[in-house]
Simulated scan of single mutants.
Amino acid sequence: MSPAPGVPGVPGAPTLRPGSPAEAGLDPGELGRLVRDVRALPDGPRPWCAGAVVLAGRGPVIAVAEAVGWAVRYSGYDEEADAGVEPAPARRVPMTVDTPFDLASLTKLCTTVAVVQQLERGTLALDAPVDRYVPECTGVAAHGITVRDLLTHTSGLRPELPLYELPDRASRWRALRTEEPSAEIGTRLYSDLNMLLLQQVLERVTRRGLDRLIREGITRPLGMSATGFGPRAGAAATEDQRGPWAKADRGMLRGEVHDENAWALGGVAGHAGLFSTAHDLAVLCRTLLSGGSYGTARILGPDHVALMLTAPGLGFAVDEPWFMGELAGRGAAGHTGFTGTSLVLDPATDTFLVLLANTVHPRRRPPDSGPRVRAATALARAAAPRPTGPGTGH
Rank of each mutant, 00 (worst) to 15 (best):
L196D: 14
T154H: 13
L202R: 00
D149R: 01
T187S: 11
R188E: 05
I145V: 10
D211S: 15
A226E: 15
T238D: 13
T187V: 02
G243W: 09
V140N: 05
A226I: 01
T138I: 13
Y133V: 04
G156K: 00
L213R: 01
R148S: 07
A226T: 12
Y190W: 03
D168G: 03
L157C: 03
D168I: 07
G243S: 13
Q241N: 13
L166C: 11
L150N: 07
L189R: 05
R204V: 08
A183L: 07
E179Q: 11
W173C: 06
Y133I: 11
L197F: 01
V134H: 01
T219A: 08
C137A: 12
L151V: 09
R169D: 09
D240V: 01
G230R: 15
L166T: 11
T227E: 04
P159Q: 07
G217T: 12
L150K: 11
V134G: 08
L176N: 04
D192L: 06
E136C: 06
R148D: 09
R215A: 15
W173E: 10
E216M: 03
R148A: 08
L210C: 09
A183M: 04
A141K: 10
E179Y: 05
N194P: 01
R204I: 00
R177D: 15
E216R: 14
A183F: 11
G230V: 01
Q200D: 15
L176I: 08
R177N: 12
P244H: 03
E180L: 00
V205N: 12
L198P: 05
G186R: 04
D168A: 14
A141H: 03
R148L: 02
A142R: 14
L176E: 12
P221I: 03
T146L: 02
E239W: 02
D168W: 05
A236N: 08
L193T: 07
R208D: 11
P221R: 01
G234Y: 02
T187H: 10
T238N: 03
E160M: 10
G209K: 13
E216T: 14
Q241T: 12
G156S: 04
L193Q: 03
L166H: 12
G223E: 00
R188D: 00
G243V: 15
H153K: 00
T154W: 06
R207P: 04
G209N: 07
G156E: 06
G217C: 08
